[in-house]
Write a protein that binds this DNA or RNA. Structure first.
Length: 532
RNA sequence: GGCGGGUUGGCGGAGAGGUUACGCAGCGGAUUGCAAAUCCGUGAAGACCGGUUCGAUUCCGGUACCCGCCUCCA
């Protein structure tokens, strides 16, 4: 069995991963507060811990891993959003959850086993808080219930700070009713305008932190294996979760391995609205950057290092994935990924190393392993590769006409009739098919870009040579294929748009013509074939 | 002020106390009837100052700079 090693923030060490129960490995990831589209930073933990989920399923068995990722759908940010827009809170959270699913699905993240909503667990939170009060770890003050950090000696251990240190340089909110400035709210009163639930302390709502403690307890038990999230959650969120959970369930130990991913930057700077480099996953998807490409970029940086999102990385990733998809088009994945690949992932999720190995397999032409590895990290999946098909990279043979014409071309080339072969190639390219001739064989697939390259360079060359008619012919060809382009005194303009429907129509018409021509060529070749 | 992370060749980005990371770009070459592509080779690094060591980019200490958290934040 693959030995997984993970860096545990709690011990600051890379440790062998030993689950409490190999038949039910349990992990919890802090999910989003649902009031807005997920931004690029939100998506990083989702993707990297999705790889962990996949690895655990691979090692322990698909049915032996329970993965919980919550939705925090009660929070003052949501209330503020509702107040600002006049919308119903439930509308906002429902819509945001649907968006979240759309966007994370696009990134190839598997849905967790459970996606609990905080508002469905208010009762569990109240029970937990009652327990904390009963054990003397929490106290009621002015309608609030507060956690007493001094009652938990290990408070600060996860983040490596002591209560006294924190207070020293701190700008903590010193509410007069707090026994200690670091005490945090478990329950707070709601006025009539705010969402609220009846509780022993009056109508109110939970504070931040308690929802994760309650939900992880309900779904995973008092002790479970992995708790993950962004490093920014280390303090105070995770620290407070530990304090609550360990005090509510003494001796349980709560989560055993704490994993934290480093933060995301954009072009070397912190992502922020004021710098104008703030964007959501949806923004990138809408720009036409496929989710699979975004995922690849995430995986190319180790999760415990700061990651920089750049347009350049996306371009490189897209190129690599194009190549890989092409290589894998006709193969089935090998039964299991190579050991070295699993070892890379098992070594604290070394995804950059894993991708390097995939490059190696691609270079070796080892498509079966490449594909198997891809599936293990959520790449090259049929559902994710849709963008590849959407770009009309259809495999050889998928359109039987391309296959037929290509066969005729191969025979023509074998017979030394390059004139006939070239004629057919031209027809293919003008139809919108990319053609690559190799020694005896040839491959071809539908690809608008091939026509674009061919006609655009043709138009430019003709224009420079002063042949306006030829330039016009090339431009017209492009137009007929759905490319928006104009021709004026300065020559051909840049492409300003692409109409896919128009292209498909163009493709169909030209393909029929090319097929007829191929049949004619075949007749020409026939006698020679018989003579030989 | 406290806590934590980072600093690798033109760019991205790993591992390993001593041996080529790898990818992109560059350069050189091969191959190809043409187009497109493909293939091979190759230079280049580890912020700075000390220490440990036969030997450190890799371990230890310090300095500088960058980033994050300490207040809602993935």
């Amino acid at each position: 069995m693959t030995d997984i090693r993970l860096t545990n923030t709690r011990t600051r060490k890379k440790e062998p991963f030993v689950p409490l129960d190999p038949a039910n490995v349990r992990m919890y990831l802090c999910g989003p507060t649902v009031y807005d589209r997920a931004h690029m930073g939100n998506a990083r933990p989702v993707v990297v811990f999705d790889v962990l989920f996949r690895l655990l399923r691979h090692v322990y068995g698909t049915d032996h891993v329970t993965y919980v990722r919550n939705f925090t759908d009660v929070d003052d940010k949501i209330n503020a959003r509702a107040a600002a827009t006049g919308r119903d809170i439930r509308d906002i959270t429902e819509e945001t959850i649907a968006w979240y699913h759309e966007d994370m699905d696009a990134l190839g993240a598997l849905r967790p086993t459970h996606e609990p909503r905080a508002t469905d667990y208010i009762g569990a939170m109240i029970t937990m808080i009652e327990g904390l009060v009963a054990r003397g770890h929490a106290y009621v003050a002015e309608g609030h219930v507060l956690f007493d950090v001094r009652s938990y000696p290990d408070y600060g251990r996860l983040s490596g700070r002591s209560v006294d240190d924190m207070i020293a340089g701190a700008r903590v909110e010193v509410a007069p009713f707090k026994r200690d400035p670091m005490d945090f709210v478990l329950w707070k009163p709601s006025d009539a305008d705010l969402p609220g639930w009846d509780s022993p302390w009056g109508r109110g709502r939970p504070g931040w932190h308690i929802e994760c403690s309650a939900m992880s307890h309900e779904l995973l038990g008092a002790a479970f294996d992995i708790h993950a999230g962004g490093i920014d959650l280390q303090f105070p969120h995770h620290e407070n979760e530990i304090a609550q959970s360990c005090c509510a369930h003494p001796g349980s130990g709560f989560a055993r391995y704490w994993l934290h991913n480093e933060m995301l930057q954009v072009e070397g700077k912190k992502m922020s609205k004021s710098l104008g480099n703030f964007f959501t996953v949806r923004d990138l998807l809408d720009q036409g950057i496929p989710g699979e490409v975004i995922r690849f970029v995430y995986l190319q940086t180790h999760y415990r290092k700061p990651m920089d999102w750049t347009a350049e990385k996306a371009r490189e990733a897209e190129k690599t994935l194009q190549k890989w998809h092409y290589i894998c088009m006709t193969v089935r994945p090998s039964r299991s990924a190579p050991t070295e690949f699993l070892d890379a992932l098992a070594d604290d999720l070394n995804t950059p190393q894993a991708l390097t190995l995939m490059r190696k397999y691609a270079k070796q032409g080892n498509a079966a392993d490449l594909l198997a590895c891809g599936h293990l990290v959520g790449l090259l999946e049929p559902s994710m590769g849709l963008w590849f098909d959407r770009n009309d990279h259809l495999k050889l043979g998928e359109d039987p006409r391309i296959f037929e014409i290509t066969s005729v071309r191969e025979r023509a080339r074998a017979a030394g009739r390059f004139d006939l072969s070239d004629k057919l190639r031209k027809l293919l390219i003008e139809s919108g098919v990319a053609v690559f001739d190799h020694k005896p064989t040839s491959r071809a697939f539908k690809e608008p870009d091939a026509l674009l390259r061919y006609a655009l360079s043709g138009a430019n060359k003709a224009w420079e040579a002063g042949d306006k008619l030829a330039a016009e012919a090339s431009v017209n060809l492009l137009r007929s294929a759905g490319f928006q382009i104009s021709l004026d005194e300065d020559g051909p303009s840049a492409i300003t748009g692409f109409d896919e429907v128009k292209f498909d129509k163009h493709y169909e018409e030209h393909m029929e013509k090319a097929l007829l021509e191929a049949q004619r060529v075949e007749e020409t070749l026939e006698p020679e074939a018989d003579d030989t």
